[in-house]
Design a protein around this nucleic acid. Structure first.
Lengths: 157, 157
DNA sequence: CTGAATCCGGATAACTGTTGTCCGAGATTC
DNA sequence: GAATCTCGGACAACAGTTATCCGGATTCAG
């Protein structure tokens, strides 16, 4: 049970992107967070494919959020990077072996699958309730103002 | 994001074990579910190490549940097989790069980690609320009585 | 007491998915 | 037209999962 590490990077990128008014290049985002540039580019492509960011090509190009920060949920980012598939996949064990239940009697999912699906739903619901704007508000509250100003300045240069 | 496939097998085994009065061997459990015997043996070892089942050695040995079915939660099994580590691991990105926040200012976890931890908690809480006894009750309600009796008989032989 | 059956633990290999890198094609700005 | 930048795909390295096998210890049946 492990979520892709790219999710953390992507969320940090969304927070930064929301603060910057102009497009930010993948190289700058990678340097700011001290992560692999080529690999971060792949995560940004996933965000782009999911419609969360828009990329502008050419010189002075880069990435921009497509929506306001309070209209992008953490779940949006998680599903863009990690996929929307649930962690548990029922393989219909009950239909196998010498005491197999015939397929035509298996109209409802087995109770194990239902339990897992239910847990998956509350997990996603919990992530849906938090937006990028919430994260930003939290960052602004807990980190020193001079660091925030410094980062904004570094990004512009 | 993928849970170990062994979780599904282990849960099915717990359901079966609860119905059988006598110890059941790993070979029988594997044949009943039509899965690899050697690999299922490893999952059973994990259950044993977690204290959910007890193994009796020697001829006519096998596995038995250590507690009543209503005192074993689905979460117990999931954590025994898949580990108790949360899916998201914060790598403290904020402490890296040219605009790194000094470690001494990072007394509280970053908002991203808090969001993920919160979602992880509700997920686990949801799984903790369902016990093996609940699964059994569901199985008894939804599957034909003759199949249940047949399985019990097959297990005894 | 002997032999058969069983679990345990480690070593090992195949497979899958993640992580990470690189480069050409196409687009934009100056 | 030249420089810069993103996009997408191809590809390699790595880690974790899945699966198998075997020797050793233990227990029960005869």
């Amino acid at each position: 049970m492990k979520m892709s590490g790219g999710v953390e990077w992507a969320l940090h990128c969304c927070v930064v992107l929301s603060g910057a008014g102009a497009p930010v290049t993948a190289a700058k985002l990678a340097e700011l967070h001290d992560v692999s540039q080529s690999y971060l580019a792949k995560q940004l492509q996933l965000l782009s494919r999911a419609g969360l960011v828009r990329s502008t090509l050419g010189q002075s190009g880069g990435y921009v959020l497509t929506r306001a920060a309070n209209e992008i949920t953490v779940l949006d980012v998680v599903e863009a990077i990690d996929g929307a598939q649930p962690a548990f996949r029922c393989t219909e064990v009950r239909q196998r072996g010498p005491m197999a239940v015939p397929a035509e009697r298996c109209d409802t999912p087995c109770p194990i699958a239902r339990t897992m699906d239910s847990a998956d739903r509350v997990w996603r619901e919990s992530l849906r309730r938090v937006t990028i704007a919430d994260l930003i508000a939290d960052v602004n509250r807990t980190t020193a103002p001079e660091i925030l100003a410094g980062a904004r300045e570094w990004l512009r240069a």
